[in-house]
Design a protein around this nucleic acid. Structure first.
Lengths: 308, 308
DNA sequence: CAACTATCATCGGAAAAGACGATGAACGAC
DNA sequence: GTCGTTCATCGTCTTTTCCGATGATAGTTG
């Protein structure tokens, strides 16, 4: 790249355009709040670096653009207009809630919370749009670090000190059991009551470790009958009696996708439940838009999730 | 206008873009042939003036754009791209023959010479186009002065020292007489032989003074029968026997537009004939395109006009 | 024709910004 | 813990920018 920066400056272009449009160098100097000598020199420098005579200097009459200057005037105005757009957009980023906000969301959490949250945010701030990036925890953290997403909706599990976490709601684990299970009538269960059943493990990076960790914490050994990476398939398998499984987040309807009924039982005991919340890059002060999104999440989850 | 110039510089934008695309601040410094401290400071300044954090600094990892920075990166690139276009266009103006060239032409001269000259020029330089501005001498001079036209095709009459004139061809005056005139068989004429006939004056700003001046120089008094501003109408009037007239430039076909015949007689004696040529603003060095146009004029008029 | 006015260029000094090298701090890898 | 990488900060030097004053020029006016 033969860099145009370093050859001429925005100030020079500004002087040139002002002199063309404002009727002379002196007039431009007034408008730009500069000395006449400054504007004169800036344009002379610009002419030298571009190698083109831009202005026709009349001694008596104000300077006017030369034919070549007239042509370059349009291009110079383009540069200044682009600079003005950048300036405008930056103050918008600083001040208003608008534009595109890239938001990451843990895949297992996305269907339950992303639509409601995005809807609430975009309804409140119509000039902003959310670009949703569903990913697993590792990718979310990488993207937060590299700036591809401004914020991530996820659990406070497996985080590192480079991200800051603001909890929104606790997500206590549930057990999912077939409708005809011996505990189906109970209001809740303990992990020990289930451990003798075949266990269907949600085999995703974060879930895998978390759920197995629950058994370890209770000094139990689950009978892992199957490892399944798809949450909906898992629900179906439970409904059809292949075993039980554990899940966080919203328990969902008490039917699998094919209509077969199942039951969700809150788990008693165990360690403190994980929390759903917003993860941001530590040390990166959020834009106004990102802050507004965080507020919208608080509101949306308080009403939707709070009583679940 | 809240001037964007003065708030940030092209150099700062260049550093920012290079850091985003080049994988870190140090790498950008190498690419831009600047010290790492310079690039770091430039980006920090830009962040301060824009009020937006642009980069996520990893101590170990290279700095990457933040979400907001990613958005502004596009705008910054636009500014630099526009600046690059300006730079490119200016070197093109300096070096190659292209773009639009505004050319003035005296109205009375335009039909005879403009098409041939423009055709020759545009055939030789296909990337350039001529915008023809037909006007009277006064407007041509004003436009040369104010830069609306780069060059004018006109006579060396009524010029002022602010324009530089390059003659292309002499344009000796002709007398136009009806086909049945008593001098129709002569090969040429003197003004005195015609002065007793009714004179039809081409009543245009420049012509008026020039033709009456010819009589004054010969100490003759023409019988001004009519003043007409349209050259073609004048030829018709001559052809129909209303009198004689004088003209420069090419004599044209020996018929008026309606087919009535007339004759053109070179004038003997009189002062040195005016010349057709190119007028340019004095002290304004021509662009490469304007120079090429001048050459095309020389070529075209040498072949077309030379033997007339 | 001479004084006047409007316009721009040039000059020299003062202030600000830019650029550099060296140093220091943070983070990850070994 | 130590090393290597990456970036920020500091002090200094150079360059640029900016200004007011002065000079030059051309059209206008008396």
């Amino acid at each position: 790249m033969n860099d145009p920066a370093g050859r001429f400056t925005l100030r020079q272009l500004s002087c040139f355009v002002a002199a063309c449009e404002g009727g002379g160098i002196g007039a431009a100097a007034n408008r730009l709040h500069l000395a006449q000598a400054t504007v004169s020199g800036a344009i002379a420098d610009l002419e030298r670096t571009l190698g083109v005579q831009l202005l026709v200097r009349g001694r008596r009459r104000a300077a006017t653009p030369s034919p070549a200057g007239r042509e370059l005037l349009a291009q110079a105005s383009d540069v200044l207009a682009a600079a003005a757009r950048l300036d405008e957009r930056s103050s918008a980023l600083r001040g208003e809630v608008s534009g595109e906000l890239p938001v990451g969301c843990l895949v297992t959490l996305a269907p339950a919370v992303a639509p409601a949250v995005c809807r609430a945010f975009e309804a409140r701030w119509p000039r902003a749009t959310v670009t949703l990036v569903p990913a697993h925890q590792g990718e979310l953290l990488a993207r937060l670090r590299e700036g591809t997403i401004a914020v991530a909706i996820t659990y406070d599990l497996g985080l590192n000190p480079a991200v800051e976490f603001s909890p929104l709601a606790p997500a206590p684990p549930y057990a999912l059991i077939p409708a005809g299970h011996r505990l189906a009538a109970a209001g809740s269960a303990e992990l020990a009551e289930l451990a003798t059943d075949p266990f269907l493990l949600l085999d995703l990076p974060l879930s895998r470790n978390y759920f197995l960790g629950l058994f370890r914490a209770a000094a139990l050994e689950p009978i892992v009958a199957r490892r399944v990476a798809d949450p909906e398939l898992l629900r179906s398998l439970v409904a059809w009696g292949y075993g039980y499984t554990l899940a966080n987040a919203l328990p969902g309807p008490e039917r699998a996708v094919d209509g077969t009924p199942l039951r969700a039982l809150p788990l008693r005991g165990g360690p403190a439940p994980p929390r759903v919340g917003l993860a941001r890059r530590a040390g990166l002060e959020p834009t106004r838009t990102a802050t507004a999104f965080a507020e919208a999440c608080t509101d949306a989850l308080a009403t939707r999730w709070g009583q679940a």
